[in-house]
């Protein structure tokens, strides 16, 4: 017969991890220029949220600070967030298009 002061025994469980192994591949950081003079900056856009106004403001400011900077506009690279096929094709083509236009660094927008 069970005694009144006896503690009920709850079962214990040994449980496993519900996640999976990480498949992340770390990309080495690209070398950034100390000065943008003589550099080419590209604008890459997802065709959302007032990107052209944003890029224009950045371009004007950079031109004032670094008159020797050159720019490549977003339309060269197409929509990086369009239809499924358009997005995949344009993102895959980015490296070649950036090299073709001798781009030194890129501004990607607009995440929201």
């Amino acid at each position: 017969m069970k005694r009144l002061d006896e503690e009920p025994r709850e079962p214990r469980y040994e449980v496993v991890w519900p996640l999976g192994k990480s498949a992340v591949e770390i990309v080495d950081e690209s070398q950034r220029a100390e000065d943008l003079d003589g550099q080419t900056v590209a604008f890459v856009w997802d065709y959302l949220f007032r990107g052209p106004e944003m890029f224009e403001a950045i371009k004007q400011e950079l031109q004032e600070r670094c008159p020797g900077a050159r720019f490549v506009d977003y339309d060269v690279f197409g929509n990086i967030h369009g239809s499924d096929a358009e997005e995949k094709a344009n993102v895959a083509a980015l490296p070649a298009r950036l090299r073709e236009h001798r781009v030194d660094s890129a501004v990607v927008a607009v995440g929201a």
Partner: peptide, 27 residues
Amino acid sequence: MPAVMRAAAAIERANIPAVAIGATGFE
């Protein structure tokens, strides 16, 4: 934001430095 970061990754893999822009809350 995911599309921006995916494009930034493609650019960095090409050994070109990238900068991403997003709005508050998406960081």
